[in-house]
């Protein structure tokens, strides 16, 4: 990999190993999450950069490696949230994913099932899409998702259930 030296160079004193390990193992996941949420490559890249720069500056304070992943996601999320607030595009109210059943995209003819499902996930509102992304793509636990999103575990469970229900209903329609 030719790009990691760019990161190592920032730690010419040799203390880079733990940071580089975290960076290598999380950057792809973090970027995919940010891109799914932001839907803009530049904004996603900005959020990812912000997360690693903050980790770089605060790494002594982040004692446990176990919390690093949720900390990174949470930091990127806050960046996106602030950006959306500034852009007045973010609606913090809980959306109703049930509307997906009516508004979801129709499947293309001979469209691959996974591609269609991906479009269904993309059609969910941001909070429910995020719950699905963090649980299914990232494999995070309820606790981790709660830490990233700053809501109680019960809210995480509810968002996941509503998102799955909307996806399952639409998926069932296609299967018929």
């Amino acid at each position: 990999m030719t790009s990691i030296p760019d990161i190592r160079l920032a730690f010419a004193d040799g203390s880079s190993e733990s940071f580089v390990r975290v960076y290598e193992s999380t950057r792809g996941r973090l970027y995919a999450y940010a891109l799914s949420m932001a839907r803009e490559r530049d904004l996603a890249a900005d959020a990812v950069q912000e997360a690693y720069v903050r980790l770089f500056q605060n790494s002594p304070a982040i004692a446990s490696p176990a919390v690093v992943v949720s900390w990174l996601f949470s930091t990127a999320r806050n960046y996106l949230l602030n950006h959306h607030r500034l852009e007045k595009r973010f609606t913090p109210a809980e959306e109703d994913p049930a509307s997906l059943a009516d508004s979801a995209p129709e499947p293309f003819e001979a469209e691959d099932e996974r591609a269609y499902l991906r479009r269904l996930v993309d059609a969910l509102g941001p909070l429910h899409r995020e719950a699905i992304l963090l649980r299914e793509y990232e494999g995070m636990s309820y606790d981790e998702i709660a830490k990233v999103t700053g809501v109680p575990v019960s809210t995480v469970k509810m968002r996941l259930f509503k998102a799955r229900k909307a996806l399952a209903e639409r998926f069932e329609k296609r299967e018929r």
Partner: peptide, 25 residues
């Protein structure tokens, strides 16, 4: 749905972002 979503490939990480982040660090 869960099975299909879990096996989906995610967007590739842009290489130039490594360089950008390295410079910023």
């Amino acid at each position: 749905v869960r099975e299909a979503v879990r096996h989906e490939e995610t967007a590739p990480f842009p290489r130039e972002l490594d360089r950008r982040i390295g410079t910023e660090l």
